[in-house]
C-alpha cells in the first residue's frame, strides 16, 4: 500500500502555493536599524549573520523601514516531519523582496530535538503594506492526490477559498492542523 504523507502534490502546489527555494538572492545590502511596531518585543531578535531582524509567529503586524532586511522565523523541526511553505498570493514585489529561507538549529546533540527554526528572509523595498502567507503542514497533513488530498478540496461550506484555515495557535500544539500564518508587513 502506498500512502502519500506530508508532501504536497506538484500540481496542487502549482495551483495553491509557490514553494520557496533555499539560499538568498543577495540582492540587498545594508540593514538599517529595525523598526518595531506595536508594543511587544518578545518575538524580535537580531538575525544571526547580519541577516536583519527576526520576527516570530506571535506578532502578525510588523512595521519595517525601506531597505531593512528581516526574517519571519517559525518553529520548524525536521525531526517532526513538518514543512513550511511561502504560499500564494506572494507578497507585493514592489514592497518586499523575498531573499530565501534557511533553517537554524539549537545545537543539540539529542536525537529528536525540536528547537530548530525555519526563517523566511525578506528585504523591505518601498513604502506600502502587504501580506506574507506561510503555510504550515504538520506531519500527515497537506497530503497529495487521493481520497485524503486536502490540497485539492473545493471551497469549504463557509465559503473560504482555501481548504486551510488561518491559524494563531502554537504550530507544535497537539491538535493544530495545517493552516496559514498570515503576517501583515507595513513598510514606512
Amino acid at each position: 500500500m502506498t500512502s502519500r504523507t506530508t508532501r504536497l502534490a506538484p500540481a496542487a502546489l502549482l495551483a495553491l502555493l509557490a514553494l520557496t527555494g533555499c539560499g538568498t538572492d543577495g540582492g540587498t545590502t545594508g540593514a538599517p536599524a529595525p523598526t518595531v511596531g506595536g508594543t511587544s518585543t518578545s518575538t524580535l531578535r537580531a538575525a544571526p549573520g547580519g541577516g536583519g531582524t527576526e520576527y516570530g509567529i506571535e506578532r502578525r503586524d510588523i512595521t519595517v523601514r525601506p531597505g531593512e532586511r528581516f526574517s519571519l522565523t517559525v518553529p520548524s523541526a525536521p525531526t517532526l516531519g513538518e514543512h513550511w511553505y511561502l504560499a500564494d498570493p506572494r507578497p507585493d514585489k514592489a514592497v518586499l523582496a523575498f531573499r530565501g529561507e534557511h533553517t537554524t538549529g539549537d545545537n543539540s546533540e539529542a536525537d529528536g530535538s525540536t528547537g530548530s527554526t525555519r526563517s523566511f528572509d525578506f528585504t523591505a523595498l518601498a513604502e506600502g503594506r502587504t501580506t506574507v502567507r506561510l503555510l504550515h503542514c504538520p506531519l500527515y497533513t497537506c497530503t497529495g492526490p487521493g481520497p485524503d488530498d486536502r490540497s485539492t478540496l473545493g471551497p469549504s461550506p463557509s465559503g473560504s477559498p482555501t481548504p486551510y484555515p488561518t491559524l494563531t495557535a502554537d504550530p507544535h500544539a497537539h491538535g493544530t492542523g495545517a493552516g496559514f500564518y498570515v503576517f501583515t508587513i507595513t513598510v514606512r
Binding site: 525531526t79 534557511h102 533553517t103 537554524t104 538549529g105 545545537n107 543539540s108 536525537d111 529528536g112
Partner: peptide, 9 residues
C-alpha cells in the same frame, strides 16, 4: 545545515 546546524532523529 550549511551553517553546521545538526538535526538528529
Amino acid at each position: 545545515e550549511a551553517d553546521g546546524t545538526r538535526h538528529g532523529h
